[in-house]
Design a protein around this nucleic acid. Sequence first.
DNA 1: AACTCTGACAACCGCAAATCT
DNA 2: GAGATTTGCGGTTGTCAGAGT
Length: 316
Amino acid sequence: MRKPDPSGKNNNGNKLMRKGLWSPEEDEKLMNYMLANGQGCWSDVARNAGLQRCGKSCRLRWINYLRPDLKRGAFSPQEEELILHLHSLLGNRWSQIAARLPGRTDNEIKNFWNSTIKKRLKIINSSSTSSPNTSDSSSEPRDVMGAGLMSQNIVAMCMDSSSSSIQAMAMNQYMIHPFPMLKHDLAMSDASGYANAVPPCTAQLGLTGNGFYGNHGSFGGGNIGAEGELFIPPLESVSIEESFKTEDFTDRNPNSHPHDNMNSSINHCNNINKVENVAEFENHWEGDDLRVGEWDLEELMKDVSSFPFLDHYQVD
DNA sequence: AACTCTGACAACCGCAAATCT
DNA sequence: GAGATTTGCGGTTGTCAGAGT
């Protein structure tokens, strides 16, 4: 971590914006300001909150660390799985992946990917050269926006004894079909021969007859087109604002932190950007054959359907 | 006990798009 | 319409802490 620069000056000795780690006092200032005034122009926030930080830095600090709706701690197996899948579809669009993972930031996901999953990829990349099976692209699901790496990712995770989540799944499932949720989809749509040969993985992943994530609005159950196109899950539906009202943020910040004691006041925050429902996408989701490569990502970002397996994020 | 390695993560940087003047 | 400013994103770096040697 960068140490806070106590001088508050730049290399020329001029009084300039602070850099480096945020001190607890700075965090408190920013938090108090945000709770009292809400989000406005970030340079104004920095100025008015009495912080010698640039607006950009304040924004980053708020989004990645201070935001009350953040869910800290390790990624759950479901989240890992979801990240993998979303990355296979979206690539390094961390912000869009994060938009589908409640309480997670793009930075967090990016770090997780770069530190954990990339290493697993390395393993498979080094081992795949000696494994003829992994090079047989004909048995892969259709490569959609980089999804060709998908099976390698998963296989790598299965090979990695440190994998906490993927390993929980039956390894042979992955060896036959790297992504059970998609396999099921493919099987349902008869998109590829091998898909039909393998029963859907239901025990660990909560597959239902209607698809991996439930009925419509899920990965499964008709979200794969006749040609095997993959579909991206919709954005989750819980609004940050509602989360504030119902969540005990102290519980969600297990890490000891200087401003944990501010959590009790967080519920009053009413100025967080709210994810809004967009009925238009619902219509797409239920009716149209929306395909990867065709969807308007901007539209998707506005949508808020939910993942059944992420129910614990939802506000009743 | 001391040193090295590695994972995790906070934060910075540069760029591009959006918005404002 | 042009330039300035702000915002958002993805890539990268730097540091701490724990594990391993």
